[in-house]
Design a binder for these strands. Structure first.
Lengths: 345, 345
DNA sequence: ATGAAAGCGCTAACAA
DNA sequence: TTGTTAGCGCTTTCAT
């Protein structure tokens, strides 16, 4: 049987109220009794029972995080950012992998509520309408990480994917590329892909680029578990089968870019001599493969940390405004390495 | 104000005890009242307050997991295995990244206890004596994942690292390699490295191999955040600077192997023609780089899942035996690919 | 400055 | 089969 506040009170010959005061650093306790209580706490090895405290104060100092799959590098970094920020504010995080399965999402959300989480973070490939409905019905703050809902009802923190990919294509254009393609994840399933695709087409239009249909491959894949590298490899096969080739291809992420490059080399072509590649996310691998991949940075750790901070702020401010006005945009960068050839030379 | 069991009782015109019975599926409730209660629950949207329940039953159905850094691929997979297993048994996991910092470890352990976690999982590069002391003083079950403590006091689940690396070297020997080296993580800081090194020397001794001192590089690095690839690259530089070269090098993990291979190629040598490489862990990358890396599989997902299962078993069995008798060994395999040359041909 | 006491939402004897 | 009631360990008025 663990030692309780009662035991401490008895040992220090004070009331439980007094012990509670010293534990919570509430003034109004004479230095003398405070020391007596502290001594008793120390001697008995008393640890406050957070469960009892939570029940009383109706706050658990824990947040739930709904995550597609922590195994995907992007999500891993985000989760690290989240836990680090929570560590600072003394919150705990309950982790839930859902694989984008709405049933799991609902179940976990229910658990979060039963466990009286103070808020929930969602880091998903996309926010389905059904999930949005669920989230809207919660009585605690919600923040989305690296994703946004269709209706923009929830606060989210993310980079500007549309703008970033616009800039990537603009960069390609500056380097003299006018025949370009892309390899994208499934637009319906991955919100970031829809955004990145939009930016792509926006740049194509603005600069009058030539993006033939057979150079633009959108993945069918729905599941997150399939290997992105393989996907990039397969997509590039298709692109290389077309009669004319693009001079550059924009990949939705670096793993896809890597797979695409592998395919290109296997077919006896050279990157960037024959085809230029630009990736996305700046995965550590990109610096180590040959040639090093030119890409867009995506500071996921920051996304996670800012996410958590925003959520905690909402929790503690009791500001019930669960709308996108609080959304935060994290800056990105273009990382120039070796996979884009300058055609102007 | 959330709806409580009281509200439901009132709405269904029964006592709270009855409501509690139907919520917890305790028989002895007439079908008739049961339906009335269920209807009331449904209508009011009642969700049981787990915090109150936990306080009463002295079980929280949550476990704490102390993790070095979830960002490292090995640990990521383990954590996924853990959460998946917990999902099945309806446990929740509170995640703590400690970076191997004893202060953080102590702090988090304290939090785990205050939150009344039912058990704790430790997935660290090593169990320091101080951490072992802390763990031993807990009144809840402890299980170690992919690591063991010096005194083997705690149950752990892991592959047999010593045996696996013995087999790796044995394989090298079978292929005609007698001049071999290794690139290892710091033995003091990483328990697996100490084990893998032991297996290495055991094989060297058994087969009378030649493992020159300058071919055996042990990393100085203490921090987990430094890039393994870079480490492998730098270590290989040193090896290639020696007067005579080994015919094969055993790398402590695939990232190190990859870095080493990069270095070898940059110096104008070929893998496996000039130097063979064998890695460890079977990281996804190994199948995609050229040449594909021969390696030892390390099913971390399984380690995590089994870990969690064992911990939950201990929790629910109330079996207070916190000793290594419960330890579980996960099987490994050697994955033959393209980086080991057969010198017998 | 300190204590008494009510109660957070739930479970589990015990009674009826 | 159902209800009454006493806590679980803590915080927080309200008295003193």
């Amino acid at each position: 049987m663990a030692v309780t506040i009662q035991d401490v009170a008895k040992a220090a010959s004070v009331s439980v109220a007094t012990v509670s005061r010293v534990v919570n650093n509430i003034p109004l306790v004479s230095e003398d009794t405070k020391q007596r209580v502290l001594a008793a706490i120390d001697e008995l090895g008393y640890e406050p029972n957070e469960v009892a405290r939570s029940l009383k104060v109706r706050k658990t100092k824990t947040i739930g995080i709904l995550l597609d799959d922590i195994t995907k590098p992007q999500y891993t970094s985000i989760s690290r950012g989240v836990t680090d920020a929570c560590w600072i504010y003394e919150y705990n995080v309950i982790l839930a992998n859902t694989d984008g399965d709405i049933e799991k999402e609902k179940k976990y959300l229910k658990v979060f509520m039963q466990k009286q989480c103070d808020g929930v973070l969602v880091v998903n490939r996309k926010i389905s309408d059904e999930l949005a409905t669920q989230l809207a019905s919660l009585k605690v703050p919600v923040v989305l990480g690296a994703v946004s809902d269709r209706e923009k009802k929830f606060a989210n923190v993310s980079i500007d994917n549309r703008k970033a990919s616009f800039e990537a294509v603009e960069y390609l254009h500056e380097k003299g590329h006018n025949d370009i393609g892309y390899i994208m994840g499934n637009r319906e399933e991955f919100t970031v892909c829809a955004d990145r695709e939009a930016g792509f087409w926006q740049a194509v239009e603005k600069y009058g680029l030539n993006a033939k249909e057979e150079w633009c491959i959108e993945s069918e894949k729905k599941k997150l578990t399939e290997q992105d590298v393989k996907e990039g490899y397969d997509a590039m096969q298709k692109i290389l089968d077309s009669k004319r080739l693009p001079t550059a291809v924009f990949a939705a992420n670096d793993e896809i870019a890597f797979g695409a490059m592998t395919c290109i080399e296997e077919r006896g072509l050279k990157v960037p001599h024959d085809i230029s590649i630009i990736g996305f996310n700046d995965y550590w691998l990109s610096e180590w493969v040959k040639p090093q991949i030119t890409t867009i940075s995506h500071p996921m750790y920051d996304v996670g940390a800012v996410c958590a901070r925003l959520l905690i702020k909402k929790i503690e401010d009791e500001s019930t405004s669960i709308d996108a006005e609080d959304s935060i945009v994290i800056p990105h960068d273009i990382i120039i390495r070796q996979t884009v050839r300058d055609l102007n030379d």
